[in-house]
Design a protein around this nucleic acid. Structure first.
Length: 434
DNA sequence: TCTGGGGTCCTAGGACCC
DNA sequence: TCTGGGGTCCTAGGACCC
């Protein structure tokens, strides 16, 4: 038995914790670069604002409907997420943190009334952290996700499901007939693992609801689609196929990519951006104690513009696996110079680290060439770099090719409406006035 | 003027091996 | 006239997730 605990409209709820006047208002949180809406309050959803709606297309609602837009404040969301997760963990013995706002809990061995227990955990998260969440319970992770969807929808749209499913929904307590009714009332695209493409194909085949999907022929699903969708159907039928991963696995690839605040055409500007992205990626790499075997670098124009299009990537193998910022930046810059062409209005660039491996395994080799640097010294240098940037703030010590932050940089992302780091920066702490 | 960022898994097809 | 069978590895691309 699994539970899924999921924060409602998470980023918006985080903002509301420190700005209660936003309660009841239509609010969206914008992606990096203030590009599009990535979180919407219920009121914003009711205005018809879609997930991913470009800000410039919905901006007019600020005047007409009192829509409030905020730049993403990931420092705040990450911190409130940690607090929410530690309380959600109280629901059962094992927890898998699935995303910034969701965690699965393995309920094996938990006695008593699971719904009552969930309501208590939910109330505690609301009171101690200030984030409202929905909790779904089911025999498999896919059913727990479905239950979570029902819990949220029952709360947001009265009449859509039985009232008592609001906030907490345990599918395992339903009779077969009740379960069928719920599945028949749920569109198939709400299932975890059924995205846009597969939804389209299912609808063409007359599979409209979750109930239709759960009754589909398994062999046909595997033939027509894949083992992935077959697994989803089995999970809906109550056979657990996706295990809880309570120990986070190290990433197999690490990326740092950004859209630019303004189009970039000059190589030297790109070099600054790519240096920063490669440095950030290398830092993430060291944080999970990995080495990278390859560095990928890409640049591209905006596919939304009518301008001449250009999109190239290049993968640079490293001499030996490394987590050294200087090595990774050098490889990324060499790649950039190889793919750069003048005359294009570039909108985005990025660096990805591939072929990651643990830094405790080091392939030995014959010393056929002179070592310029002592590997242990370089490791200490990187540790010092990370410590300094941790203590005095990101960008305190950086590669010279990153340029100076004080200079005007076309590539820096736009963030015109960001709220303070209420919980992560002393100077930004909220002040209570009597 | 203005459209995010960061991941995972699976499959098909080609190159290559004996 | 007739041209096998069985396998691995790699890559690109597509689907999904939040």
């Amino acid at each position: 038995m699994y539970a899924l605990v999921d924060g409602n409209n998470f980023y918006v709820s985080c903002e509301r914790v420190f700005r209660p006047t936003l309660n009841g208002c239509p609010v969206v949180v914008l992606s990096n670069n203030d590009g599009c809406a990535i979180a919407r309050s219920n009121e914003a959803k009711a205005l018809g604002i879609a997930m991913g709606a470009p800000w410039f297309k919905i901006k007019h609602m600020a005047e007409s409907d009192g829509l409030v837009a905020l730049s993403a404040n990931f420092a705040l969301y990450g911190d409130l997420s940690d607090r929410m997760m530690s309380l959600a963990a109280g629901l059962g013995p094992l927890q898998e943190i699935y995303s910034i706002d969701e965690s699965f809990i393995d309920l094996t061995g938990v006695r008593g009334n699971l719904v009552e227990r969930s309501h208590k955990v939910r109330a505690r998260i609301l009171q101690w952290v200030g984030i409202p969440c929905g909790i779904g319970i089911g025999a498999t992770k896919t059913l727990a996700k479905l239950a979570n969807h029902i819990a949220k929808t029952a709360e947001r749209k009265p009449g859509s499901y039985p009232e008592h499913f609001a906030q907490v929904c345990n599918l395992a307590t339903l009779t077969p007939l009740e379960l069928e009714a719920v599945m028949a009332a749920t569109p198939v695209n709400e299932v975890w693992g059924v995205g846009r493409q597969i939804t389209k194909q299912l609808l063409e085949g007359g599979v409209n609801t979750v109930l239709d999907l759960v009754r589909i022929d398994l062999a046909m699903v595997k033939r027509r689609w894949s083992v992935v969708l077959e697994r989803t159907v089995r999970e809906l039928q109550g056979t657990s196929c996706i295990d809880l991963e309570h120990a986070p696995q190290p990433k197999q690839e690490i990326a740092c990519t950004r859209s630019f605040g303004h189009p970039v055409t000059e190589l030297h500007e790109l070099e600054e951006a790519v240096t920063e992205f490669a440095s950030r990626a290398a830092q993430k790499l060291r944080k999970q104690s990995s080495l990278a075997g390859q560095v990928m670098c890409f640049i591209r124009t905006s596919p939304f513009r009518q301008d001449a299009q250009y999109s190239r990537s290049v993968t640079m193998p490293l001499r030996r696996p490394s987590a050294d910022t200087t090595v990774i930046v050098a490889a990324a810059l060499a790649g950039l110079r190889a793919i750069y062409r003048p005359g294009f209005k570039l909108a985005k660039a990025g660096v990805m680290l591939l072929e990651l491996q643990s830094d405790t395994v080091q392939q030995q080799e014959l010393a056929l060439e002179r070592e310029d640097d002592n590997v242990a010294d370089r490791g200490r240098l990187m540790t010092t770099l990370d410590d300094l940037n941790q203590r005095y703030g990101r960008g305190t010590v950086l590669m010279a090719s990153a340029g100076l932050a004080g200079n005007r940089r076309a590539w820096s992302m736009k963030q015109e409406r960001r709220t303070p780091g209420y919980t992560t920066c002393l100077a930004d702490m909220a002040v209570a006035r009597a």
